[in-house]
Amino acid sequence: MIDLGALQRAAQEELETVRTNEGLESWRIKHLGRSAALMLFLRELAGMPLEQRKEWGSKGNAVRKELQELCEQRVHEILVASTTQSIDITQPGMRPNIGSLHPITRVKNDLNDAFKLLGFEVYDGPEISSEGYDFDALNFPPDHPARESMDTYWIKTKNSQSQGAKKLDLRPHLTGLSVRYMQTHTPPFRFVYPGRAFRSESTDAGHEQTFYQYEALVVDEDISLSGGKVLVYTILERVFGKQVTIRMRPGFFPFVEPGFEIDMQCLQCGGEKCSVCGDGWVEMMPGGPPHPNVLRAGGIDPAKWQGFYINIGLDRLAMMKYGINDIRLMHSGDLRFLRQF
């Protein structure tokens, strides 16, 4: 027969050490639960002679009752203990498990919000594109040195001599996409087209083979250079959350006329010259009105319509915004980097 006394002692001793509700629940399952030794014993009694049933049944049930009462008492004690125990306000809280959006996605979202306020549409298109859109339509003359500056990844196709629309590339910039839009929409319009672009160049802290751009185009009857400046300020102030100082200087790109580069006064040093900027200025974005040949390629009459492009390097913008010192981290997939955002 079972040693009820020993069983009760063991259970009581164990109960003394229980301090939490979870601990108490495990104790209850162990000693009073469906498969507890005591409960199994009481169930087995059902098949025994009446004498034994009477004797052991009352003894067993007494132990069970006692343990149940102790258990309830303990519930109360734990409750009292928990309410009288003071809270250590300096003890760290329990942080929820929250993931992260890539810094480039964050900056892109900021820009989308800013441009939506200005009534811009968002547009997207193919990453494998063609020479026809990425060069021919953009006023790159055949055999022009500017074609080389794009360091394009070309895609293998059956006919290696293909040209134009049949010569496929990994888009080296987003601008070809604007022609796809122009060909299928009627001006006036304004739209942005964020995305990634690809260049065959060696990587270092400042250069990547895959990088992110954010481009915007407005086509209207009289959007001018001065009008374009409004866009530039909107973007930079939205992203950096404060007023910025910019300068515009000439830059050559075949698809814009005139073309320029926009520099922002370095936010790290306020233009005092530091290791980030070198000379107090940071190159932020090129831009300019579409060359008349580009409008024509888009099926738009340059005598009636004019426009304004700007193109922002999202990697660089994110690097400036968050103080990231190496562009290669963007594609590292390294959680030690990602979880900071």
């Binding site: 009534g119 006036p188 407005v218 209207d220 009289d222 959007i223 001018s224 250079l225 001065s226 009008g227 400046k229 409004v230 530039v232 300020y233 300068r247 515009m248 200087r249 000439p250 006329e257 005139p258 073309g259 320029f260 009105p289 060359h291 008349p292």
Partner: peptide
């Protein structure tokens, strides 16, 4: 080769920085 090329010459020598940002009249679509 085209009039737009002359715009660049005028604007860059005038100074892009001397251009004042101008808000554009816009069409509600």
């Amino acid at each position: 080769t085209i009039p737009e090329d002359l715009i660049e010459e005028i604007a860059r020598m005038y100074g892009y920085d001397n251009l004042k940002p101008q808000e554009q009249r816009s069409l509600l679509r």
